[in-house]
Design a protein around this nucleic acid. Structure first.
Lengths: 139, 139
DNA sequence: ACGAGTCTTATGCATATGCATCTAATGCGC
DNA sequence: GCGCATTAGATGCATATGCATAAGACTCGT
């Protein structure tokens, strides 16, 4: 069945809006719970995510832009977040030889162990708060 | 197959984490796009959501607590958000007769028309940015 | 009727975030 | 080699947010 551009079927749009509404709900609930619980490890959910992406990377090291991409953060948000974690000794910036505009970010030993400590907490929250809204959606 | 509490199957936890990672990505991308586009109507995505929940309510009026719940916002976030929209004349607080702790929030005419103006923009963003990560997930 | 406990909303404070912009470095055409 | 466009990352600024708490209103037991 066909519809002109200017008259997209109302129900399609509304289904999309309903999905988005649901997505917001899941995100807010999980994000708040994670921030609250991870606070005991002095980490926010975003910070944890950055540590995790580094841990999962080949040599625990990524370029800023790649890290921003994989942690779903803005370039500016990542820049500041990395500054915080660097100040706390959890990771370090290293200049890139090939392109002196770029920086490599890598986990320190402290960063790896902080991540190891925090991971069970994060997983517990995901199990407790997210089992009804995450499981089976990995596709 | 059975696993002791302290040793939940690694793959289950990791699947949950992968789902959460994906959820974050979808949320961030859509939220940013919505904020950017809705700015042309002087609205944030959260503000739009509040207007929408009011519009969808029976008499365009809800108690603060109910509104916070249905818009997926913290009580404090909603309180300030409502103050902003009230200052802009898009909605108004009304005292509740039965319980003088409570407030009713209701759309003004300006609020309803602002919502009507903004909705096509929001729907357009959902269609363009969200078609690949929302459709079919309404359940 | 009084007081303890609960609920509803507002607010002080600290902070994370996005956008716009800036600087420095790189690449590309000529 | 020299400009010009592009790219990487840092930062000024304004703002939205969460947590903790405050203040006022309600409830219920005694």
């Amino acid at each position: 069945m066909w519809y002109p551009d200017a008259m997209v079927r109302r129900s399609d749009d509304d289904a999309l809006a309903a999905d988005w509404h649901q997505l917001m709900g899941r995100y807010q609930r999980l994000m708040c719970a994670l921030d609250r619980e991870l606070a005991s490890h002095d980490l926010t959910a975003s910070e944890f995510e950055v540590l995790q992406q580094l841990e999962l990377s080949d040599d625990c090291s990524l370029r800023m832009s790649a890290l921003a991409e994989s942690a779903h953060l803005t370039q500016s948000a990542l820049s500041r977040l990395v500054s915080r974690l660097e100040r706390d000794g959890l990771l370090e910036r290293k200049a890139c030889e090939q392109d002196r505009r770029s920086q490599y970010v890598s986990l320190t030993a402290a960063g790896r162990s902080r991540y190891a400590e925090a991971r069970p907490t994060q997983r517990k929250v995901l199990r407790e708060e997210g089992s009804d809204c995450l499981v089976g959606r990995a596709g």
